[in-house]
Design a protein around this nucleic acid. Sequence first.
DNA 1: TTATTAGTCCATAAACTTGGTAGGCTATCA
DNA 2: TGATAGCCTACCAAGTTTATGGACTAATAA
Lengths: 135, 135
Amino acid sequence: MLSKKSQYAFKALTYLSEKYKEGPVLISEIAAKKKIPLKFLESILLELKRADILDSKKGKGGGYFLKQKPEKVKVSTIIRLINGPIAMLPCVSLYFYERCKNCNEKHCGLHDMMIEVRDATLSIVENRTLKDLIV
Amino acid sequence: MLSKKSQYAFKALTYLSEKYKEGPVLISEIAAKKKIPLKFLESILLELKRADILDSKKGKGGGYFLKQKPEKVKVSTIIRLINGPIAMLPCVSLYFYERCKNCNEKHCGLHDMMIEVRDATLSIVENRTLKDLIV
DNA sequence: TTATTAGTCCATAAACTTGGTAGGCTATCA
DNA sequence: TGATAGCCTACCAAGTTTATGGACTAATAA
């Protein structure tokens, strides 16, 4: 399951995608419109900024905005950043790989199955962007 | 990601699947062979028993064993039992459904995408059984 | 019936994660 | 320079995960 933090992140990013080109959006506006706890949202947006997904402007007329066009930001990127691995096991993760202890990856039915699951999931989330979240 | 508990459950169930028809297997044997903390494994097996996946026998010659043939136990059943929802969002879960607050499920891009992910995952885990985990 | 075996139950706890709050600091702009 | 709005640091309550220890109970064999 995606954490609440991830769900908040997606809501905020969807909102910012809709407002793309309308200039900076206040944290407080996003929080109010999307019903996200203000300070928690603050830390999420900051994290997204540090990951170069968002940019911000301080002072009057400031706020947050997407650094790139919505269609340039893959859903998989956001999941990995905020939620963590997409795979169900560390030993089949591409970005968070960890070797299995006491389990031969070459001869493990679970391993093989989880690779299938991973690829099925990736075929979707690697090919969707923030633009696809706007309806 | 699957919890460690889930990984232990799968390891134990795979072992019991291999030993199916060889009679009850000791907890301690499974723990030793699969390097699982004994007492933790104990509680996992008990949970699987309460869910009618396993059965057990006390006393000499006792132990745990599968209640049905390995090919009768779906992987999805185990994941849901030990790990929880398979879907990435409560609002797209079949077995753990919860309505989205402040989010119209009829018009939500994230929702639609996560249904796709769920179905892609289910198409695999609903069609694999413990038998498929033996290599 | 008694000793042994092996699962069952209950209580506890450390470590980690999640979700969230408080408040001061700093950059920007009018 | 004063208001605005994001930045930063610290903290924390609650829940979950991953265990561990010990007493209890059922089954079996001698």
